[in-house]
């Protein structure tokens, strides 16, 4: 068995003939925190869905622990997913369940643990994210940062070996961002898991990631350790890392000639 828990091999994916990914290769070594970065709409989240087997690739394959994801039947995919935990962009907490029940959800659904043990485990997970005291609250009573932490506790409820984070920092205040940032690293190391972070927040991601892939125009535009990428002279990476307004990623959406379009008389 290789040391890579997840491997993406020459993967292409697209809807209706328009390819979002054009031959992507990535590896995610065990125990590491690997980030996938790229602008909005570059298909980062779709990559997580491909790893989770929610969608099938057009070409190529994703292997999780050696198993090709899209060749699995339903049971096979569910078996693979039990090894994964995922933190959704807005937490995706079940709004009809309390914080406690949210974290208990995967345990109740997927295991036959006795109630007393579930209680202890849930409180331990909530304690790890600092929200043991909030276990009776409903998701609507939580702030954005707290909801994200509860969702994180839920994602690691069954001690997964792969934890995926979809935009874990989006829409958080700086304090919450710092908290989540620290949690991702510490949970990864405590559980001995592999973390895959999809993000466009350069500062936080570079702080915790061991390795970073840059995705642009459907291909891996650059990759490397955060420190190396900071020094990168590649125009795209430079623009992204330093947040320049214009560069290889244009300010303007592709359009007809500006002057010609203004001079045109409306047809209707």
């Amino acid at each position: 068995m290789t040391n890579n828990i997840v491997e993406i091999d020459n993967l292409s994916f697209g809807y209706k003939g328009r390819l979002l990914h054009k031959g992507i290769n990535m590896v995610f070594p065990r125990g590491k925190v690997v980030a996938i970065m790229g602008g909005s709409g570059s298909g980062k989240t779709t990559l997580l869905r491909l790893i989770g087997g929610q969608i099938a690739p057009t070409h190529g394959e994703v292997r999780v622990e050696g198993a090709v994801v899209h060749e699995q039947d339903r049971d096979g995919i569910f078996k693979l997913r039990r090894k994964m935990g995922m933190l959704f962009q807005h937490g995706a907490l079940f709004t009809d369940l309390s914080v406690f029940e949210n974290v208990a959800f995967p345990m109740r659904e997927l295991t036959d643990l006795p109630e007393a043990m579930i209680r202890d485990l849930v409180l331990m997970k909530l304690n790890a994210v600092g929200l043991r005291g909030a276990h009776v609250l409903m998701p609507t009573e939580l702030s954005g940062g707290m909801a994200r932490r509860v969702a994180l506790a839920r994602a690691v409820a069954l001690d997964p070996s792969i934890i995926m984070y979809d935009e874990p920092f989006a829409g958080l205040d700086p304090i919450s961002m710092g908290v989540i940032c620290g949690l991702i690293r510490s949970l990864n190391d405590a559980l001995g898991a592999t973390s895959i972070i999809v993000s466009h927040d350069v500062k936080e991601t570079f702080l915790i990631a061991d390795y970073v892939y840059f995705v642009a125009d459907g291909i891996v535009a650059a990759e490397g350790a955060p420190h190396d990428l900071m020094q990168s002279t590649l125009p795209f990476v430079h623009q992204f890392v330093h947040g320049d307004k214009d560069g290889p990623v244009p300010f303007h959406y592709p359009a007809d000639n500006y002057r010609a379009e203004l001079l045109q008389t409306p047809t209707t």
């Binding site: 989770g52 929610q54 995919i77 569910f78 078996k79 997913r81 039990r82 994964m84 995922m86 959704f88 962009q89 807005h90 995706a92 907490l93 079940f94 709004t95 009809d96 959800f105 995967p106 659904e109 997927l110």
Partner: peptide, 24 residues
């Protein structure tokens, strides 16, 4: 309720937890 569960990715989250949303 179901539409909002879908919008807020709750159904997706369930699927990713290896829980079948149709059954649950």
């Amino acid at each position: 309720e179901i539409g909002l569960m879908k919008t807020t990715e709750q159904l997706s989250a369930m699927e990713m937890m290896a829980v079948n949303p149709i059954a649950r």
